[in-house]
Design a protein around this nucleic acid. Sequence first.
RNA 1: GGCCCAUUCGUCUAACGGUUAGGACGCAGCCCUCUCAAGGCUGAAAUACGGGUUCGAUUCCCGUAUGGGCUACCA
Length: 488
Amino acid sequence: MSRGRLLTSPPLSDGTPAPRVRFAPSPTGSLHVGSVRTALDNLLFARREKGVFILRIEDTDVERSKAELSEQILSSMKWMGLDYDEGPFYQSRRYDLYRAAAERLLAEGKAYRAFETPDEIDRERKKAEAEGRAYRYSGAGRDISPEESERRAHAGERHVVRLKMPAETIIVQDLIRGPVEFPADALDDFVLVRSDGHPLYHFSVCVDDTEMKITHVIRGDDHLANTPKHVALFRALGAPVPQFAHLGMILGTDRKKLSKRHGAASVEEWRDAGILPEALFNYLALLGWAPGGDREILSREEMEKEFSLDHVGASPSVFDPEKLLWMNAQYIARMPGEELLARAAAAATQELPPRGVALPAIELHRPRVRTTIELARALRSYGQDPQEYDADGLRKQVRPETPAQLEKLVARYETQTDWSAGALETALRETAESIGVGAGKLIHPVRLALTGVTVGAPLFDVLALLGKETSLRRLKRFLNAIAREVRT
RNA sequence: GGCCCAUUCGUCUAACGGUUAGGACGCAGCCCUCUCAAGGCUGAAAUACGGGUUCGAUUCCCGUAUGGGCUACCA
């Protein structure tokens, strides 16, 4: 997957350097669909612009990061086809970089040590809250002389490192939202390095983005308010400020950030629900981005060719499982039979019938299912006689005269040599006519007998596919069952 | 509370000053039909509100409302 580790990209033919973008999830468990959309927009942007897509795992939060959680993210990305060109890079293995950057900032006077304890800070914050004003760090650390600061640090006094925020309005140029202004007094001298030496998110992000020569930061809207901090940090680092693009959030139907409460919110869950990765990719790509021309179903190639941040909207969007299901059905309708069989087999919990049966059965059921789970279930019914019959179906389709009529049909089918759908239909219709009833009076009970339910694929195709022996066996079992029913 | 962002059918979105405000999901009806789907056709359904600017605002500006985000020694 990784195409090597070169950290500079070749220039485009017009001489401008190729864009470098990254997806930077924190390994907090399963991959959220909101994260996938961010990853996918980065990927599409990179492909469209002939750039480089980098994966970086943000695991600096030791309490919350575990190795297996990173593995899960990697496997979900692979399943989704989110192929990265460089990485994965783990922030937990890049501490030297952050340490060096912090020391440089300190030496250059762009950052300073602050010796307040968490308790002190907490008290300040509570006090500010009680007085109804916004808390801001006092800035006391700024007044400690460099010599004094060094001395206390070497003496082992616990401290954090804070950035000296410039006293100026910071304007973030957002590719999606335009210029966004943040007044200086809204920004604090925030913490770069914790007292235990761990770099904090904002710091490691900017150091890494600088070191990886990231040109475009495409991420969720929830980071917009953090961006002025990042701009200030890039400047302090003496690094070029990347371009920013903040995507609208993905929400649940209650317009709150999509989460577990709304049902499936991770790729694993949708995979387990029988959703194809191609369909999920397509659906998510269209959340926020609209290609021209009223198109909905787009191939990966089309998306990679046409994706543009110019056509990405700024507003949040509600995740609609119904439309995802529709889109999945569209992909099921178009996928080659062999391929679809493999997907259904992967989704199935029990063994599917042999491909000689499964392949034609797929063609019968593909327009009738929305997920590979449903498809697998439909296929299974060809290898296993119905264990029970739909109660409503029995009530509606089985009348006192039904057994006798079915006996006649069975007798006719016993002698049937041509077991093709056409011949079976002719035989059934002739039988119905000879009894003097409509064909439906036979068709519906027969479907119930063969499949256990009253809805499904065209009956004569099912009969033909099941074969003479199985069909007759199921019909006779059904006759026995309804005979028992009548007695009790 | 402060700062920031967003606001077109129920939902996803198109229309980047002039359209009968378009498409898709979902919903309803009709057609097709052995059922259920799929498919085809038709229909109901939106510019949050109030002010400006303009010959003309969905579109630009300002308020209000609503929703969301940020405001940690989390990411």
